[in-house]
């Protein structure tokens, strides 16, 4: 049932990763002994009921959080040993996030929003804006660069987020319920954009969803329940 992996090209490698949260006297085990490898260029869908630990998994893969136990290697590097700023650097260079709630800066143009990661990698202004324009063109929003988030539709906002995720040429896009706030037609547009980025740019895409139709866009499906992987299989194209 496990997906075929090429040991040399493991981009993401989790070994017996657990994550516990303390809730008063209780301890919640959001991730329970999860082992998982994802190779460069994969398109993985993660499905599971609410509270099953999908977001927790994404946060750990995205270096926003660190495991309570187990090890996580990203591109050969042991992430568990890294400090706050080193994790920030990895998020900046390696990970592109797409959130359900978009998470764009308000009162800030699409262009500035897309250029944000480049600001923190120290690029000069001209380079930031030329690359942000390219990224906006890739997601089909070349004509909206001066619009603020509240002047854009949900689908357009999500495409701005995707442009922000690819602007620094990060090899991984992590999308946590990217279509959750969108109507189904717009959701399909967004998923097609991921498919295109995965096929044409070779970007590794991991999408969390609880909708079967959305999960179908991936080529590998991981099912989650109670912090554990219950199935992991290739999907027919």
């Amino acid at each position: 049932m496990t997906a075929p992996v090429d040991a040399t090209s493991h981009l993401i490698n989790l070994r017996t990763v657990s994550k516990e949260y303390a809730m008063g006297d209780n301890r919640i085990r959001a991730l329970d002994d999860v082992s998982l490898t994802i190779a460069r260029g994969e398109f993985v869908s993660v499905m599971g009921p609410s509270g099953s630990g999908k977001s927790t998994l994404m946060n750990i893969i995205g270096c926003l959080d660190t495991p309570s136990a187990g090890s996580y290697r990203l591109d050969g590097q042991d992430v568990g040993r890294l400090g706050r700023d080193e994790l920030a650097r990895i998020r900046n260079r390696t990970i592109g996030f797409v959130f359900q709630g978009f998470n764009l800066l308000a009162r800030t143009s699409a262009l500035e929003n897309v250029a944000l990661p480049l600001l923190y990698s120290g690029s000069r202004a001209e380079e930031r804006y030329s690359r942000a324009r390219e990224a906006l063109a890739t997601v089909g929003l070349a004509d909206r660069e001066h619009h603020h988030p509240n002047q854009l539709s949900g689908g357009q906002q999500q495409r701005v987020t995707i442009a922000r995720a690819i602007v620094n040429q990060a090899p991984v896009i992590l999308a946590d319920e990217p279509t959750g706030n969108l109507d189904s037609a717009t959701g399909i547009e967004i998923m097609n954009l991921f498919v295109r980025l995965n096929r044409e740019a070779g970007i590794t895409v991991i999408v969390v969803t609880h909708e079967r139709e959305i999960a179908q866009y991936g080529r590998r499906l991981i099912k989650f329940r109670d912090g554990r992987i219950v199935s992991d299989a290739e999907l027919a194209p």
């Binding site: 996030f97 990661p117 923190y120 990698s121």
Partner: peptide, 16 residues
């Protein structure tokens, strides 16, 4: 807080 979260998520370091 949210703005700060976004900045940190896309790579802002402590001193940034």
């Amino acid at each position: 807080t949210r703005e700060i979260g976004i900045r940190i998520a896309v790579g802002a370091k402590t001193w940034d």
